[in-house]
Nucleic acid binder design. Structure first.
Length: 392
DNA sequence: GATCCACGGGAATACACGGATG
DNA sequence: CATCCGTGTATTCCCGTGGATC
């Protein structure tokens, strides 16, 4: 770039120097249409689903792998495509005379993190299968389940239902039992459970006919993921390959953490008014990373009021986080939070219970009574703050 | 009128500490 | 010395109520 071009760029102002073109493309929560570097995994899932092309259902299966291995990314992307194709096949059946076209089953995806009750589960499944909207009130759980059975029993093809985060004790700290939920599904449903637990450890052990393991990302692939996302979300040349390598080394195969670190680095660079990332941005983001992380997807699937409480929490200073009680008071004082302090306190304990925050022993004890604890975040605060403010 | 579920609120329980008791 | 007790907090548990929706 010559000097004239540089001057022109400066004269045009921030518009052209804008670092971020699209936050969504950088978000660790957003799942892209075409997950980078996971071709082989897609192939294995297609091998599993292959019977549907002959008009039969695959056996029930369990997809498992560590945090950040891209399980959700691949499964959501693949099922969305399959359902698109299946929808076409269902329509084509009436318009084509070709005998060879096979009718495909329905494909549905349910995230258990957003499913806090039996009702919510069957409602979600039914809602994705039928055109008309299914009422959320004024109708009981049994009624919903009956309608689901009616819908599917009347169909020749049945359905493949992916159920993600089956071991997410995280959000659903209800006593939801996956085995029971699956047992309530009609018989012509093939489920595809997705989770982190080892197949032998999970409650589903003994119910699955097939297990599909997904390994953590190799470093080179993870670098690919980062540069791909950066190229669609950031200004050209804003993100150096060496920085991608640095992040990938640190993230150790966890794409969620890698993307969160990139995102954190970006918010730093923006704050300092740079149009590209520097090593300090990356190092700072890494230094600020919480010890063990819970997925931001988990955080965003919490109820609106809990998210609101967390939004307030990430802005508190150290003194206000001294104890659960002071934290509660500080949040209750936030005009944006419209909850009683009793509820806020209960929320904090519940959030700690599911691992979104962690209670740690507060340092100085003030003599009387049981020692208080304070809460520490277990997710990336800047990323949460930015995405939250973007959406709500 | 039916239903789900988020809130609120408070009771029950756990824990820490120091002092009293056996 | 071990144990119990009282007081003050922290934490967990539970359930009724009411808003929202059909």
């Amino acid at each position: 770039m010559n000097i004239d071009a540089r001057i022109r760029r400066r004269r045009r102002g921030t518009e052209t120097r804008r670092l971020v073109r699209d936050y969504e493309a950088l978000s660790p929560v957003a799942h892209v249409e075409e997950p980078a570097g996971r071709g082989p995994v897609v192939e294995r899932l297609l091998d599993h689903l292959d019977p549907v092309f002959d008009g039969t259902l695959p056996p029930n299966a369990y997809v498992h792998g560590p945090f950040g291995a891209g399980k959700s990314a691949v499964v959501t992307a693949l099922l969305a495509r399959m359902e698109r194709v299946a929808a076409q096949s269902r329509e084509a059946i009436y318009t084509t005379t070709r005998a060879r076209s096979t009718r495909l089953p329905w494909f549905a995806y349910v995230d258990l993190r957003e499913t806090a009750s039996e009702f919510a589960f069957y409602h979600r499944v039914l809602d994705t299968l039928v055109e008309e909207t299914v009422p959320e009130h004024g109708i009981g759980t049994d009624e919903i389940r009956d309608r689901l059975h009616e819908t599917l029993n009347g169909s020749r093809t049945g359905a493949v239902i992916a159920v993600d985060h089956v071991d997410a004790s995280a959000v659903a700290d209800t006593d939801l039992d996956v085995v029971d939920l699956f047992a309530g599904l009609p018989s012509n449903v093939s489920w595809l459970a997705v989770g982190r637990d080892d197949p032998a450890e999970t409650a589903l052990a003994g119910y699955t006919a097939r297990e599909i393991a997904i390994d953590r990302y190799r470093r080179r692939v993870l670098i690919d993921v980062l540069t791909t996302r950066a190229s669609s979300g950031l200004a050209p040349q804003a993100f150096d390959h060496a920085l991608a390598r640095r992040i990938a080394e640190w993230a150790d195969g966890n794409a969620h953490d890698a993307l969160a670190a990139l995102f954190g680095a970006v918010t730093r660079a923006e704050r300092d008014g740079r149009d590209h990332l520097v090593a300090d941005d990356v190092d700072g983001a890494i230094a600020d990373a919480p010890r063990s992380t819970v997925s931001l997807g988990t955080v965003f699937s919490l109820s609106a009021n809990k998210r609101r409480v967390l939004r307030s929490l990430v802005d508190l200073d150290e003194a206000e986080r001294r104890s659960v009680t002071t934290t509660t008071e500080a949040i209750a004082a936030d005009p944006d939070v419209d909850l009683s302090s009793g509820t806020i306190k209960r929320y904090l304990y519940e959030l700690a219970e599911v691992g979104v925050v962690e209670r740690v022993a507060a340092s100085p004890r003030s003599g009387k009574g049981r020692a208080p604890s304070r809460v520490e975040l277990r997710f990336f605060p800047e990323v949460f703050r930015t995405l939250y403010d973007l959406h709500e």
